[in-house]
Design a protein around this nucleic acid. Structure first.
Lengths: 343, 343
DNA sequence: TTGTATGCGTTATCAG
DNA sequence: CTGATAACGCATACAA
């Protein structure tokens, strides 16, 4: 049976008062008769009345919904991140509309479109790896829908974003390795066109230069992030006359493939060669050979901050009816040792 | 600058026609002048007009939003599942409101509440482990908001649900082990009160009985799912006069802890003792010792089906203005060998 | 202290 | 073929 939801109109009818009275009574308006107020509130409770958020949002041109677009929730990094986002959102009574781009700009565009249609109050997004056009996003800002980018951020200055500086992190990482006596350090990097790859490479070069070591480009291999690509990179590195004693991998997936290949070649992982990576996956702690050292990227924290910034932006908006501040937050990329890494 | 979104009213004003004409022209109504129609459509395109979905939804009492509540997106099982849900949703122009219960009934209740407030068209939920009251959910159905449960479903007959029959799966698993010559089979189960534990235990018992093996309750240990709990369970099992030659673990997390403990004790994993589990985590393929055999639970498929059922329900609803069918879908729980398991 | 009227953007029902 | 108007549920400015 289709049980109709009670409305203030219904309550008003039953109590022989006007809808505005009911509306005010329910919102605890100051100048309203105590008697009427209680009468209204009691009936409301009895009828299980709940304000129709749709109607309110419609009227106030707000939805209290924030769109969140991630490349892939299967990556532990992003499932952590969205938990941070959700936590901050819940605290401020916002709610999350979820979508994935699967690292496909076309899908990303579609999701953005769907969210615009749903009139989200704001959008938090970590860009697809392939995204290099931003029209679908800048379009949103014309409609005054604020965007906060996190982790995979666009290469513009004046956007709201929170990210880890992996350039600096990589410099630290290289420095740490050198200080421990590892000098022949290799890098298995990702595809050139990715910003993430550039950060890592530049950090790698700077890290070596800073310690007066010269950069040997034979030590820099690329992988297309597939297992085969990583295997090929490993093959090249191991075939060198002077193979590396330490390998920095692009991320934990590459790390796991690289370690797997090394083991197949009879190499003592983290002994003959030590492996270090970027902390994308807490789960690596369970694997036989987690990276000896990782650059922690704080996905939960990044998500949380992104949402907090969003709240600020929305607040600024209601105050001034326009957004004039740009929030940029660079989080530290800290070096962490893995507890149960075996050396 | 606050750029106002164009409305049909605005278009009507500019073209000196009525809003209804504009509305009809845009929705390609049959009896409308071709000239007017094109004029309207052109201006609409020029102004970048987009119908305000909020307004339409409000009027139609529909949001095209489906709430999805999961225990924890960090579990790979659920990140797979939500991808399946999203895929089916996108196909039908539905969109997903995301929330986690963190296996806490209180939080679950709050999330359900928030989603009711947002007037989701339906709810897809995998219950928190601790949930044993269902008022917060049955309440939704009174408001005619359909619910589809998946994987962790309530113990009622007449609800929409999709799940894997782990009872049967466990029987198969035990049978497989016995047929391979393993007879002293242990089970490290989860907390008694969980439905999931009962399924596994019953399957375990039935599996043994079917093959005329008697059940030795010393072979059945419990863990509270913490690492310590699993370690303790392993300790007991290994201390037995006749320790097991095969161990079925409650899930892949328990599996990994159990394997870790076994290794610490100098046991040759999958040789001295073979380990089998339930496929909650694709990532186990990367670990040193994935379960030799797993019971696949098809998270993506379950999510997809759950959403498809939701679509049907919503369709039924608009047709009949009430929902009379209950959809129950039991998916197979198949035995799978792990490719790179080492024996 | 309470009621009336208006508007949010859209569609649908009547008229014309 | 097109226009005027009501309605969806609520908040609020203005009246009383």
């Amino acid at each position: 049976m289709d049980k109709k939801l009670p409305t203030i109109k219904e309550i008003a009818r039953r109590l022989n008062v006007s809808v505005s009275t009911v509306s005010r009574a329910l919102s605890d308006h100051p100048r309203i008769g105590l008697r009427t107020k209680t009468r209204v509130q009691e009936l409301a409770k009895e009828l299980n009345y709940e304000p129709n958020a749709q109607a309110i949002f419609f009227k106030q041109k707000k939805t209290f919904v924030i769109g969140v677009i991630l490349p892939s929730i299967r990556e532990e990094f992003f499932s952590e991140a969205i938990s941070g986002i959700e936590s901050a959102a819940t605290e401020h009574n916002y709610t999350i509309l979820f979508g994935q781009s699967y690292d496909d700009p076309e899908k990303e565009k579609n999701v953005v479109e769907a969210m615009k249609k749903q009139r989200v109050d704001g959008l938090i997004i970590s860009l697809s790896k392939q995204t290099n056009k931003y029209d679908h996003l800048t379009a949103l800002e014309k409609y005054n829908i604020p965007i906060v980018y996190f982790d995979r951020v666009p290469p513009f200055e004046k956007v709201n974003k929170v990210y880890c500086n992996l350039y600096k992190g990589t410099i630290d990482m290289v420095g740490w390795l050198i200080s421990r006596g590892y000098k022949r350090i290799a890098l298995i990097n990702g595809p050139d066109k990715l910003a993430a790859s550039k950060e890592r490479l530049n950090g790698y070069i700077e890290g070596l230069s800073k310690r007066k070591l010269k950069v040997d480009m034979q030590m820099v291999e690329k992988t297309n992030l597939s297992r085969e690509g990583t295997y090929a990179a490993m093959r090249s590195l191991l075939a060198l006359k002077h193979p590396p004693v330490a390998i920095i991998t692009f991320n934990d997936y590459v790390h796991m493939d690289a370690v797997q290949y090394a083991q197949q070649q009879g190499i003592q992982v983290n002994k003959d060669i030590i492996f270090v990576s970027y902390a994308n996956l807490p789960i690596t702690n369970y694997t036989a050979f987690p990276p000896l050292v990782s650059i922690e990227q704080y996905p939960y924290g990044q998500g949380e901050r992104a949402m907090e910034i969003m709240i600020k932006l929305l607040h600024d908006k209601t105050e001034n009816n326009l957004i004039d501040t740009t929030y940029v937050e660079e989080m530290p990329a800290t070096l962490v040792m893995h507890g149960n890494a075996r050396v």
